[in-house]
Amino acid sequence: MTLLFQLTLYLYLLATAVYVAHFLSRQKQVRAVARAILLAGGILHTVYFIVRYVYVGHTPLTSNHEAVSFFAWSMTWAFLSFWWRYRVKNFGVFVSPLISLLMLIAALASREMLPLPPALRSNWLPVHASIAIMANGFMALAFCGGIMYLLQEREIKKKKFGIFYSRLPSLEALDDLNQHCMALGFLLLTLGIITGSVWAKQAWGTYWQWDPKETWSLITWLIYAAMLHQRLSFGWRRRRAAIMAIIGFAAALFTLWGVTYLLGGVHSYVG
């Protein structure tokens, strides 16, 4: 099982390297190779989760290692499924390093298999945890799109065309990408909060108790809700939307880690 994880990690790292090579060389064949490696990594990663599930006997989303690794997994598949419908030039070179980084963090975390704490013994665990983390996956894609937008816009605005101008897609395409990922991420986040709250009622007897994790999820949710609202009613699109995608992702990351390590609370067993 360690081998399986290690192999997945190496495939992601390799995919990142090949994506960078494609970014610099602009050879189409190189990109196809990168995509194939990433796909192989994604499949192996799926196998890893199944194997781990069988070993631990419950949904493997309860330790920091598992959660972060699942985060990377959902990013990979969100990216691959996204690619199936839309083509965004050189998106991969921005997404794959982030996937690799997450996997490195997961690799450093303890991979110990702990018995499930009583509070988590529920059918809600797979539903709530996977939805909440998948929301992060899409927000991460929106974050990458936001970074790409700002880089591309900078070169057009400053009229100094460096390495990005010809390699990145049009601002319009990046803005569409941003909107699409944020809408999906927001939807999943909403579902994540709702399922969490229903589960909390069953486990703790109350829907909402202002636990730090709950509070920060709500803050993240409010940021995204405000962003979508502004976009639809006042045309907060493009540059501002790109910045908001980056801020929103930072809030999501803080909900994931910051809360656990800095604020604690009843929800802090999960990474």
């Binding site: 057009i156 101008y165 601002l171 319009e172």
Partner: peptide
Amino acid sequence: ELAKKIFGS
């Protein structure tokens, strides 16, 4: 070309 980079289609 610039127009296409800004607006896409």
